[in-house]
Design a protein around this nucleic acid. Structure first.
Length: 238
RNA sequence: CGUCUGCAUAGGGA
């Protein structure tokens, strides 16, 4: 089955999704080899990249038939598929019924809600998660910060900043950028600058967030001089 | 077992 999985993944990696699914069809016809969790995760991920909700639903049904839907990683891949395809109804339904939730499941659900415009619902879910035994990691917090930024929830955003310190979360460029962007979009330019100033390895994302934040809050001159500094730091603008 | 799931920035019509 590993051999089949490798083949399926090679097709998916090259964007040959049709071939990947054709291979899956051949695989389930065999009676001596059964698809495993890895097979279904790869295919669910392919559906996500394709945005193919219908195929994803079929895959979910198959997973239930063979009992692999109880595998948490498979469940997570299916949940993420529903979220990325924008079917919040199916996503929430599955999120509530799935056998166990971990930090990945929660992050997908938070992302799905926020990216369907349900920012408050997403932030509310995050609050609920606080009371479960799920320890937020940097990816989850980035997702929440992004929701805060988009809805202007400065207080929630500040609270996340506190959590980052409290949990000793690893601060990578992505997390720093999410913080900068959250402060900037919420109008707390000074705080955004404070975070920006401490970032060691800035990339084009962090520069863009900071420059854009300044520009959109009436600091056009500062934005331009920051752009000069960006070129000086040899970061390629996009 | 050469296999697997979640993260950040801009812009358009009505």
């Amino acid at each position: 089955v590993v051999t089949w999985n490798v083949m399926i993944n090679m097709y998916s990696d090259r964007g040959l999704y049709k071939c990947a699914f054709d291979l899956f069809k051949d695989l389930i016809k065999l009676n001596n080899i059964r698809p495993d969790g890895v097979t279904l995760i790869s295919l669910a991920s392919a559906c996500t990249l394709l945005g193919d909700l219908e195929r994803g639903k079929l895959l979910h049904r198959y997973a239930e038939e063979v009992g692999l839907d109880k595998n948490l990683s498979v469940g997570n891949a299916i949940l993420d598929m529903y979220c990325k395809c924008g079917d919040l109804e199916l996503a929430e339904d599955w999120f509530d019924r799935m056998p166990g939730r971990d930090v990945l499941s929660c992050t997908s659900m938070l992302w799905g809600l926020a990216n369907s415009g349900h920012f408050q619902k997403s932030l509310l879910l995050f609050q609920k998660i606080q009371f479960e035994n799920i320890k937020p990691d940097e990816i989850m917090l980035v997702t929440v910060l992004s929701a805060c930024a988009q809805t202007g929830a400065l207080d929630q955003g500040k609270y996340i900043h506190v959590l980052i310190d409290r949990y000793g979360i690893n601060r990578d460029v992505v997390l720093e950028t999410a913080l900068i962007d959250m402060y900037a979009k919420c109008g707390a330019i000074e705080l955004a600058q404070q975070v920006f100033g401490k970032v060691r390895k800035r990339n084009v994302f962090s520069w863009n967030s900071m420059i854009g934040g300044l520009a959109m809050h009436g600091h056009g001159e500062d934005a331009i001089s920051l752009f000069e500094q960006m070129k000086h730091d040899k970061v390629m603008p996009d």
